[in-house]
């Protein structure tokens, strides 16, 4: 049986970049616990005969041709940005300079 404690909530909050108060941590621990217990009912089903499901839709190979399509111009692309700088999105200085995928 899963139980979520406030420490785990804090870790999740950090991963999700959420700043939670002590009250919120306690409240969400309870709520998350309820959700997990609900979902955990699935564990009672015998799935030994089932293949893992990669996707709920019975579809595969939905692909597009390598054909250009119009995108947004720079103005529109930046329209919702809180801050911009000469055509770039502007964000607070990043210290850890390890970019790329």
């Amino acid at each position: 049986m899963t139980t979520i404690d406030p420490q785990q909530v804090q870790r999740l909050a950090k991963l999700a970049r959420l700043d939670l108060s002590d009250d919120e941590r306690a409240r969400y621990a309870g709520q998350l616990d309820t959700i997990l217990r609900y979902v955990e009912q699935l564990a009672q089903v015998d799935t030994s005969d089932c293949d893992p499901l990669a996707h709920p839709l019975p579809l595969t190979d939905v692909l597009r041709g390598d054909v250009p399509a119009p995108g947004l111009d720079q103005q529109d692309a930046l329209a919702n940005a809180p801050a911009r700088h000469q055509g770039f999105f502007k964000v607070p200085t990043v210290l850890d300079q390890t970019g790329g995928a």
Partner: peptide, 21 residues
């Protein structure tokens, strides 16, 4: 010619944020 998930052209050295959608 285009990106992995959309039809934006791959462009090297273009003006910033001009090949986006």
């Amino acid at each position: 010619r285009t990106k992995m998930w959309c039809g934006c052209l791959l462009a090297y050295g273009a003006e910033p944020n001009t090949h986006v959608c």
